[in-house]
Simulated scan of single mutants.
Amino acid sequence: MTLILASQSPRRKELLAQMGYQFTCCPADIDETVQGTELPAEYVSRLAIEKAQHVAKQYDDNCVVLGSDTTVVMHNMMLGKPESYQACYDMLKMLSGDTHQVFTAIAAVKSGAVQVMVIITDVSFKSLTETEILNYWQTGEPHDKAGSYGIQGIGGQFVSEIKGSYSSVVGLPLYETTQLLSAMGIANPLTQSK
């Protein structure tokens, strides 16, 4: 059985590879616009499913396609990727000294069957100064990150506490991914006899 990751995220690739899975990557080019009054869990679920289904159309039925999507949520507002320093500043000021949620959905598609899971993790930030935010922006790290930070990079130093799945905040929850793939017939490499 072939496993395909519907993502070009280097972080997701790294996490899936570190678990020992053999897979190929095929990024899904889909519209990620929020629809109407979509709630965060609905939004990430829909995108994870759409990514997996989009890629699954290109392969035969003997493939399992894994899609994933992550969003940062503060006071019920979804924070996307910053398009400018001002957007980054506004987001990080909002997160500063407070606790937000990171919603990650993973979806597996095989022969038209779909399974999806949503993982929610609480992340608390220390209070950030304007200088810290500006210097962080200038590293380039926030530019392609939901919520303007990467927990696995320099931005990890802003995190004072995390309740839930660290790997989910990075973009691929390890525990839930192995459960989902096992349910779809892809064995966990650690459970295989050598």
Rank of each mutant, 00 (worst) to 15 (best):
A6F: 05
S7E: 03
R12A: 12
K13I: 15
L15E: 11
M19R: 06
G20P: 12
G20Q: 08
Q22Y: 01
P27G: 00
A28D: 10
D29A: 09
I30V: 15
D31A: 05
D31S: 10
T33V: 08
Y43W: 05
L47W: 10
L47H: 06
L47Y: 04
A48F: 07
E50G: 01
A52E: 04
A52W: 00
V55C: 01
Y59F: 15
G67A: 12
G67N: 10
T70N: 05
H75Y: 12
L79F: 14
G80I: 05
G80E: 04
E83R: 09
C88R: 01
M94S: 14
L95D: 00
G97A: 10
D98K: 13
H100G: 06
Q101L: 15
F103I: 03
T104K: 02
I106L: 15
A107M: 14
A108E: 03
S111Q: 14
G112R: 02
V116M: 03
T129E: 05
T129V: 10
E130L: 12
T131A: 14
Q138S: 07
T139Q: 10
D144V: 14
K145S: 02
I151T: 04
F158T: 08
V159Q: 06
E161Q: 13
I162N: 06
I162P: 05
G164H: 02
G164N: 06
S167Q: 03
V169Y: 01
V170G: 00
E176M: 10
L181W: 11
S182L: 15
G185E: 01
S193A: 06
S193F: 07
K194N: 14
